[in-house]
């Protein structure tokens, strides 16, 4: 028996909005520690890892580890029917091939039940070791989204270079070139507006902007985004989910032929 009750149902709504266009079908894994997902896009260039820890749920019952295959587009359609202030409960009986989403209005005067068929998805998980990164960038998530959006109107790849001066996002295309430099700025009145660069050593990597733009759909989840870079390995773009966990997007770099 599985029954997960999330008072801040809007978090789950936002999570689905941020991954439904990147990944079509995925397994949600439920265990005593929490509700998680790891899935790659169809080209295996990007990977999303979600964790919602069990403590973040008002009620978390998971009798045994269970993996539920879902079509994320259909799941998003059902979650769109939940109000932003609704409590969302996810229920599944053992051995059942459906999952039920229950939406309760804050005043408990409206309760909705949506039942969705589960899918069989055989997906192995990639082992992603915790790594020391050469550069870690923490910046306002809206700022990062704006940069990716602006640069993608000029070119389709971005070179992200981190030096002690700051971080530079560069692109070039048919109409010309664009460079955006963000300097470390911790003298702000609100911490979430700071741009922090931890850079043990300089790094420069090239990525496809369309994936980064897809990742920034998670912007509503967090005021800040953490971007971890190391030469020669995928970048990690992480949005914390309010004391519950995180959503991490990994993107493989492009290299010189």
């Amino acid at each position: 028996m599985l029954e997960l009750r999330l008072v801040q149902g809007s978090l789950l709504k936002k999570v689905l909005e941020s991954i439904k266009d990147l990944v079509n079908d995925a397994n949600f894994d439920c265990s005593a520690t929490g509700f998680s997902l790891q899935a790659m896009d169809s080209s295996h260039v990007a990977l999303v890892a979600l964790l919602l820890r069990s403590e973040g749920f008002e009620h978390y019952r998971c009798d045994r580890n269970i993996s539920m295959g879902m079509n994320l587009g259909n799941m998003a359609k059902m979650l769109k029917c939940a109000g932003n202030d609704d409590i969302i409960t996810l229920k599944a009986d053992d051995g059942s091939d459906t999952v039920t989403f229950m939406f309760e209005s804050p005043t408990q005067d409206k309760i909705a039940d949506f039942e969705m068929r589960l899918m069989d998805i055989d997906s192995e998980h990639l082992g992603i070791p915790e790594a020391e990164y050469h550069a870690i960038l923490i910046m306002p998530s809206a700022e990062f989204a704006r940069i990716c959006k602006d640069l993608s109107s000029i070119g389709d790849t971005v070179v992200i270079s981190v030096t002690k001066e700051g971080v530079k996002f560069s692109t070039r295309g048919d109409i010309g070139t664009a460079n955006v430099v963000c300097r470390q700025n911790t003298t702000v009145d609100k911490p979430e507006e700071a741009t922090v660069i931890e850079m043990p050593e300089p790094v420069s990597l090239t990525f496809a902007l369309r994936y980064l733009n897809s990742f920034t759909k998670a912007t509503p989840l967090s005021n800040t985004v953490t971007i971890s870079l190391s030469s020669e390995i995928p970048v990690v773009v992480e949005y914390k989910i309010a004391e519950m966990g995180y959503i991490r997007f990994y993107l493989a770099p492009k290299i010189e032929e």
Binding site: M40, S43, H44, V45, A46, L47, E124, H125, L126, G127, I128, P129, T157, T206, A208, I233, P234, Y250, A252, P253, K254, I255, E256, E257
Partner: peptide
């Protein structure tokens, strides 16, 4: 042109 790598070239299935 630059070659787009994939996640599978960095991490293996566990």
């Amino acid at each position: 042109a630059r070659e787009q790598l994939t996640m599978r070239q960095f991490y293996c299935f566990r």
